[in-house]
Simulated assay, not measured.
Amino acid sequence: MQTTKKDMVQVIQNKKIALISGGNRGIGYELGKQLAEKDYQVILGSRNADKGQEAASSLKNLGYDVSVFELDVDDPKSIQKAVEYVQQTYGRLDVLINNAGVYLDEELKMTEEDPAILEKTLRTNLLGPYHLIRSFLSLMREHNYGRIINISSGYGQMDGMDQTGPGSYKLSKLALNGLTRLLAAEVSGNIKINAVCPGWVRTDMGGPHAPRSVEEAAKSILWLAELEQDGPNGEFFRNGLQINW
């Protein structure tokens, strides 16, 4: 029996739609896999179109229903194209995971490193999530449903700001945490915005000696995508437990 376009639309309508920025590798890729296992319609956002297609093909070969969209979170025009694509293709967005991020710091202190490192880091780690949330909120409000997850870091906790470390990265995550709280205070209805620290994970960013696998990290994040209406909003979590800002 041939599947019709009407049948496909019905299938999509019965699924929740999730977009993951930086979804072509690492934690983002694993988040896409685990959401697809839960029967979400997953959209992998990838700055590099070819790498995004490779990731999507890999998951499709495993039997998962995913798509890919070329998404550069540093470019508001790219974000707007993503909004148009989601709206025209699916009609709504249920889950937005702001996973794309950069870690450009080396051993230099912030007062010694090139200011361009801070500027690039803030564009990707702070302004990218800001523009994505702002652009998709109207679609979520239209359907009175949304789960937004900002992938942050314990490096962004305020009580660690008096310790040296990757300053640009730390500052960007501190700002992302602040953005989470500010926007959560502004939303109403059945929309939740939370931040989460995945821990030190074996990815290109975390390195091969990190103690945590991407599978463990993704599992510790995804419960925030399935919050009930009375679930937390504007909070910061690690391993399912609330942590200090």
Rank of each mutant, 00 (worst) to 15 (best):
M140Y: 05
Q88F: 11
L222A: 02
P208M: 13
L224F: 01
M205A: 04
D159N: 15
I193A: 05
S172D: 08
E107Y: 13
G206L: 11
R141G: 10
E119V: 13
G178R: 10
I151R: 00
G156M: 06
A217P: 04
N144A: 13
V86T: 13
N144I: 09
M158E: 13
Q88K: 12
G189C: 09
N144T: 11
Y130C: 00
L93P: 01
G101W: 00
N194I: 02
R181K: 14
P166Q: 08
L176H: 03
L176N: 02
G101C: 05
N144D: 15
K120L: 04
Y85T: 11
A217Y: 05
N125W: 02
D162A: 14
G160F: 14
A82M: 12
L93W: 11
L93H: 08
Y145M: 00
A175L: 03
S153W: 10
Y85K: 09
T180N: 13
R134N: 15
E107T: 14
S220W: 00
E186R: 06
D204M: 03
L182Q: 14
M205T: 07
L139D: 07
D159K: 08
I117L: 14
T89N: 14
D94V: 08
S152T: 10
P129M: 04
T89G: 08
A210E: 13
E84K: 12
D94G: 05
K77D: 15
V102S: 05
N99S: 03
M158T: 15
S213G: 14
G128E: 04
T111A: 12
D114K: 07
M140R: 03
L171M: 15
L118V: 00
A185D: 15
I191H: 02
